[in-house]
């Protein structure tokens, strides 16, 4: 049965021929790309809040899939069932009565309450209770409960600064890394971000969260990894930041408590040694004395504006 008489088979064959032509011309790309198994869902969820995004996304998808399928069904059914027949007339209904107006508005409000309502509710809950529920200032006096990290984005790299053993930023034992972000598993991590040059956006796809790093102001972001999240992940820059934007990735390692203690202690020691050596050097060569090396020009803000 030919339901759609306006798409004659001859042309369909031509379309197929076209596709074949395209496939032959560029097809090697399709084949050569199949080195890695494809994935159509977000990368592994490693944060304790990540499932909130996943479940909300799925929920919304089911809700709107219902609406969309209903709409498409009506469209296609109408296209077939209500096609013009010679001599027939359409129903003359304008839908201009008050009753019709009330009905359509009521229907729209029902959709709003039924679909947008839960979405709004869950989104509000997730944002207030989780994603933007930053650890409070009492908790973060030491890095035991909440690890504090300063992030300085630049074209096209990420700098990270940890307070070191003394728990104070801008001191000799600060640990500073480039494109190497390490956190202990299961601990809350609070980041304060800014940028050296243009706007960047720190995107942790595995934690389902991102936040812009703006020059001239400090924004913040927090997450907590799940207890089984030890492994290697990646940071992406989500905001266009120049022509090498696509290369601005950083390594994101979740370490076990033991690995963390080792790495943190060792790094702080190296930092201190380096600072000592530099101080000695500068003592001998005063003319080479640099400005305060321990700072990126801002202090950790215990109470950020937002």
């Amino acid at each position: 049965m030919r339901l759609l008489k306006f798409a004659p088979p001859a042309y369909l064959t031509k379309y197929a021929a076209w596709l074949t032509g395209i496939y032959l011309a560029f097809g090697h790309g399709i084949v050569s790309a199949e080195q890695v198994p494809a994935r159509y869902t977000p990368p592994t969820d490693i944060s304790v809040d990540g499932h909130l995004f996943d479940s909300l996304f799925i929920l919304v998808t089911w809700m709107i899939l219902g609406l969309f399928v209903a709409m498409t069904a009506i469209l296609i059914y109408s296209m077939i069932a209500f096609r013009q027949k010679p001599g027939k007339r359409a129903v003359y209904e304008k839908g201009d009565s008050k009753k019709d107006a009330v009905k359509s508005v009521a229907f729209a409000i029902a959709i709003f309450l039924g679909v947008d309502g839960p979405l709004l509710g869950f989104s509000h809950r997730d944002v207030i209770d989780n994603f933007w529920n930053f650890p409070n200032t009492k908790e973060i006096d030491n890095d035991k409960d909440v690890l504090r990290v300063e992030v300085l984005a630049q074209q096209w790299a990420w700098n990270f600064r940890y307070a070191g053993k003394d728990g104070k930023f801008n001191t000799a034992d600060d640990i500073v890394t480039l494109n190497d972000f390490r956190v202990p598993v299961g601990r809350k991590v609070l980041l304060q971000l800014t940028s050296k040059d243009v706007i960047h956006s720190m995107f942790l796809p595995n934690c389902r969260i991102k936040r812009d790093a703006n020059p001239g102001e400090i924004t913040r972001m927090w997450f907590q990894t799940k207890n089984d999240a030890v492994g290697d992940y990646q940071i992406a820059c989500a905001q266009m930041c120049g022509y090498a934007h696509y290369l601005m990735q950083g390594s994101f390692k979740v370490l076990s408590e033991q690995q963390w203690t080792d790495w943190y202690g060792e790094s702080a020691r190296i930092s201190e040694n380096w600072a000592t050596a530099q101080n000695e050097f500068e003592g001998k060569h005063a003319e080479l004395k640099a400005r305060n090396n321990y700072s990126w020009g801002w202090e950790w803000k215990s109470q950020p504006p937002q």
């Binding site: 977000p42 909130l52 995004f53 909300l56 996304f57 919304v60 709107i64 609406l67 969309f68 679909v115 947008d116 979405l119 709004l120 869950f122 989104s123 997730d126 944002v127 994603f131 956006s201 995107f203 796809p205 389902r208 969260i209 991102k210 989500a238 905001q239």
Partner: peptide, 18 residues
Amino acid sequence: LSGLYLGSIATDLYLHDT
């Protein structure tokens, strides 16, 4: 319909700029 995901903050935090 796909706009719904982007209008809600909780999903936009992940989907923004993707």
